[in-house]
Design a binder for these strands. Structure first.
Lengths: 200, 200
DNA sequence: AACGTAATGACAGTCACTGTCAAACCGGAT
DNA sequence: ATCCGGTTTGACAGTGACTGTCATTACGTT
């Protein structure tokens, strides 16, 4: 049996996976190769991760808990999107620290359709969790869903532009994205004809 | 060689697939079984569909073209979400006609994670196409993306409630969903503190 | 040092999916 | 009717993701 030395097998597998994905690409890498580089058997890979893709989406569970927790703790007077903004903002530092790992990870995802598909479901699950957190703040069900989706999209937009240009840190990009969204909100309505120029 | 009789092999495969998925479930059905029921070989299945999931997501291409076309043809004065509403509305009849097929299909998807994942990517692709169509109407890039996502989510909500209760037809559910969205728009803003009570 | 639990290796097996090539189908030209 | 060229299919072999099972090994506990 492989000596259980040093880093836990789980971490070695993640490390080996991202290395190989960067070197050869996701599709050209077999789970057996990942396992070999990590010094374990292929079977062990599937004991730690339910499938090949999941080796890149591991932190999601904690991220969800932390974000929903931050939303729950936000001042009750805040509007939905403002609560989300604060939750995202409270994650600036951890995400900055993770950048060296998450940047190559995102590059692999961006050029692999199968991984983009998985990312979409992770994002959707996160948005759903955020919507639930908003509902527990007393927000209407439909508004919670809408705000959660919009907030997530804006967050992703900010992270993407931060990946492209880290200048000013993630916080700057978050502010910019939410400011832009704020400007959009005024031109955001469904029906035109049944409104006069009067407001409210 | 199998006599090329009756319905084209493609349709037979789709029919056989949805039947088997309803009977045994998606995971408990092999592509070989689908092919056998359709009277062809497994190899032929993969000549018609790139993967097992795709047999349930075939109309997507045409749907995208028709919806983006409808958006393009909408009166130029309409706001983004109103243009989307009209595009969706113009599809009431085709969707009503398809209900006998799409209802069981949706039930299969709803209880199969792998299919939900694929559906998410289809929805995302459609939203992206709608955003592009809005941009070509002169809508700002970010607003187009936001409106497309929101519109798609509202459309899906309407279709879901129409699946649950066809009373009044899809049109009624669409109106209700967009009316609800319209009510939400007023409480939809990002930042609270930097606004006085003044409007505009 | 003995023990129990959890992690691992070894092995066999299923199934989605692909490449390849020959055979069968089809419509149109002769 | 016959031939012909392009398309569709069948047959077969192969890869790789993923699962079940069981014995074995590592590690903490006593």
């Amino acid at each position: 049996m492989m000596p259980r030395s040093g880093e836990p097998a789980r971490r070695r597998l993640q490390q080996a996976a991202i290395e190989l994905f960067c070197e050869r690409g996701y599709d050209q890498t077999t789970t057996a190769e990942i396992a070999t580089r990590a010094g374990v058997t292929e079977r062990t890979f599937f004991r730690h991760f339910p499938d090949k893709r999941e080796v890149l989406f591991d932190g999601q569970g904690k991220l969800r808990e932390m974000l929903t927790g931050a939303v729950a703790k936000a001042p009750a007077t805040l509007k939905p999107l403002e609560a989300l903004y604060r939750a995202f903002r409270s994650f600036e530092q951890p995400l900055e620290d993770n950048r060296p790992f998450s940047l190559p990870r995102q590059q692999v995802i961006d050029r692999t359709p199968a991984l983009q598909e998985r990312e979409l479901t992770k994002v959707a699950a996160l948005a759903e969790a955020l919507a639930l957190a908003l509902r527990q703040r007393g927000v209407d069900e439909r508004l919670a869903a809408l705000a959660a989706q919009t907030g997530m999209a804006t967050f992703r937009y900010a992270v993407a532009s931060w990946f492209a240009d880290p200048t000013g840190g993630l916080g700057t990009h978050l502010d910019r994205a939410f400011d832009e969204l704020d400007g959009l909100a005024s031109s955001f309505s469904t029906r035109q004809e049944r409104r006069g120029q009067g407001i409210r």
